[in-house]
Amino acid sequence: MMSTDLNNSMAVNVDSNLSVWHLLDARPPHDGVDPPSGEGIPPVYDVVVFENTILGNFDLPFLRTLNPKQIARTARKGYVIYRVLDIGVGHEHWHEHDCDVYGGEMDSLDGPGLPPVLIERSVYQFFNGPVDDQGGFIDGTVNYYLLCPVSGKQRDQRERPATQRVRYPWLDEQAVLSERWRLLHPDDNAFGSFRDTVPSSVVQYLFKTPCYHSFRFNQNLFWCPFRDGHIIVGHVATPDLVTFQPKQSKNNRQVK
């Protein structure tokens, strides 16, 4: 499965490297998909350029756009983080209980699985063993979170606007499966070919099978205060304080 190198990844044994700092590599893989665009989505920039090791040796500028060295290059985009307000780390769900009032958390292992091989709950048991429980991985995988404004063109603090929208990017510890820092929003759901074939994130399932019985996800009823610009930082009196800013949203709804 991994030996075919479909997703340019390597395995890291953490237990052989206890008390060693591991640098998080959030570069998108070669077949990664660029972040979405749209209202409220921050701009993205090239964060990594891959070059074909064979074509890259032929630099023929006179061919202009057909220069093999240029053709061999593939740029992948991501969010450029330049000011971090806070960081967080936590497990994905281990155990969760549904209740009639609130329902339960949505988890990728509670989806339709990976038909035709692993159908519905069998994908959960593939990851967690012969048990039947509510959602979650038990292999210890964590997610990393940032609280930060995101904009690549404002690295110079002197050009920083008075107030900035705060974002909430996340990265799975399985970084190559997460591909890059992603917005905590169901629209940031596109993955490369390998990960699209073998979905691992709940946002993929919410996009592909929103009506599945354990999800019943209606994006029309989903509202994101981060994307709508209500979470800001940069008041004059408290420049580093993150606040909720009520404002008129695009549909003239007053948010309190």
Partner: peptide, 28 residues
Amino acid sequence: TRFYFTMLEPMFRRNGDQPVRSVYFKLD
């Protein structure tokens, strides 16, 4: 804007005190 993580102890143990291998996948 560089981030690091570390673990101080194994996540799981089996057969007494034998660590269960914790693995994560990153870009090669």
